[in-house]
Amino acid sequence: DIRVVSATNADLRKMVSERTFREDLFYRINLITVKLPALRERREDIPLLARHFADRQAEINGLPRTEFSADALNFLSRLPYPGNIRELKNLVERTILVSGKPTLDASDFDAQYLRHDEPVKASESSSLAGMTLDEIEHQTILQALDRHKGNLSQVAMTLGISRAALYRRLEKFNITVNEK
Rank of each mutant, 00 (worst) to 15 (best):
I96L: 10
Q154I: 12
L133Q: 11
R65Q: 14
L39F: 11
G100V: 05
A144I: 12
A156S: 06
D55Q: 00
G62K: 04
F53S: 06
V5I: 03
L76C: 00
I29V: 15
V177C: 04
T158Q: 02
E135K: 01
F173M: 00
A72K: 14
L142G: 06
D45L: 15
L79F: 15
V16F: 14
H52Y: 11
Q112T: 07
E18V: 08
S69T: 10
H138G: 08
I85L: 14
A58L: 05
V92W: 03
L104S: 08
D45H: 12
P47K: 04
T33C: 14
G100N: 06
E179R: 13
Q143D: 11
A106K: 02
D146V: 07
G83V: 06
S6Y: 03
L39I: 11
T103N: 05
E135R: 00
A164N: 08
L49C: 03
L159K: 11
S125C: 11
K89R: 14
A70W: 11
E18N: 10
R43Q: 11
D11W: 07
P82D: 14
P80Q: 04
S127F: 06
R168K: 15
F68G: 06
D55T: 09
L170C: 07
E137A: 05
L170W: 09
T176E: 08
E41V: 01
D11M: 05
S69N: 04
L73C: 05
R163I: 05
V34C: 04
N9Q: 13
L114D: 15
E171S: 14
T103I: 04
M15N: 13
T176P: 00
I60W: 13
L25V: 07
D105Y: 02
A144S: 14
V16D: 04
D71Y: 08
P37Y: 01
A72V: 14
L128W: 02
E179W: 02
S107P: 01
R42Y: 00
I29K: 15
I46K: 12
L152F: 00
T132Y: 13
Y167S: 04
K89F: 05
S126E: 00
D105N: 07
R22T: 00
S99M: 10
L88G: 06
L12K: 15
R115V: 05
S125H: 10
